[in-house]
Design a protein around this nucleic acid. Structure first.
Lengths: 163, 163
DNA sequence: AGTGAAATTTATCTAAC
DNA sequence: GTTAGATAAATTTCACT
């Protein structure tokens, strides 16, 4: 993966909160011409430093879409079982996020559903019919207080090379 | 909140995965002129249906930034205590996500740190020094298998009005 | 190398219908 | 909702350090 300099870090810090800034606005912030900014953006996209650029939609706007946090434990932590489950996560639309974790559970999922009945049906399909799964624990989300993938990027951090 | 029609739903379904589509591309997909698309986008942004538009940055690119899933229990679920904690979440850079949940825990957080030492320091500041907090449980993220805020939007769903 | 300035292509906004 | 013209931005080219 490419090494990033302080300017890259400053650009990332900004666009991870708002990717609709123009190159001109971005250039003013990081002291670079708009074209230089764009070249960097293009590079960061091509190298996969920027994984994706998305709109975050309000859950409320989409009906009473409910969200659950689910902790999943597998029967055995064998790599083929873990990999199979990872693939299932990636291909299941209801699963917004899936993190493979250490500790009390093996996976933390964020799952959306239209209703509780909908979610129950999902759990039958996704959990009960899967012999690899030992158990799962559901917590219903009452408020999505903070929802971002923004990292605390500090361009002054020595981990970022000089320009 | 505004009522959405099937075209709005189709637009949201697309841009929640990729917000860099041009209005022309978007228009082709949803059978609308580019300017009509843009008007809708503008409205969806103004109404808060689109909460934000962001770049998702690769954790690997930012050094070995580690991520933790943390389940937090408060001493009491009194509304002023809950609200105070919500505010703390919103203003703390290390906290990527904070969900208020029912069940075994009161909050599920996703927290990032540069290192385990860094995280330990965060827990002292954020948890141990906060008398409102009964306890917390940390799970270290080994793999961010799936990371999105994309909802399974079906424009054909009757919940979306006709155009 | 990577940068900045100008020209071109492309997208977006405004206005009229 | 559309189309057409004005505005603005992204992209490419090129000269420079």
């Amino acid at each position: 993966m490419a090494s990033l300099d302080k300017i890259d870090a400053a650009i990332l810090a900004r666009i991870q909160d708002n990717n609709r800034l123009t190159s001109e606005e971005l250039g003013n912030i990081v002291n670079l011409s708009p074209s230089a900014c764009q070249r960097r953006l293009k590079r960061l996209r091509a190298e996969g430093v920027i994984e994706s650029e998305v709109a975050i939609v309000s859950p409320k706007a989409l009906g009473r879409a409910i969200t659950m946090v689910v902790l999943v434990s597998l029967e055995r932590e064998r790599s083929d079982i873990v990999d199979r489950f990872k693939t299932a996560l990636r291909t299941t639309r209801e699963v917004m996020m899936g993190f493979y974790v250490t500790g009390d559970a093996d996976f933390m999922l964020v799952v959306t559903a239209k209703s509780m009945e909908d979610y129950e049906q999902f759990t039958r399909r996704f959990f009960y019919e899967n012999p690899d799964i030992k158990g799962f624990k559901t917590m219903v989300v009452m408020d999505r207080v903070k929802a971002s993938f923004g990292f605390p990027i500090d361009p002054g951090d020595p981990m970022f090379g000089d320009d």
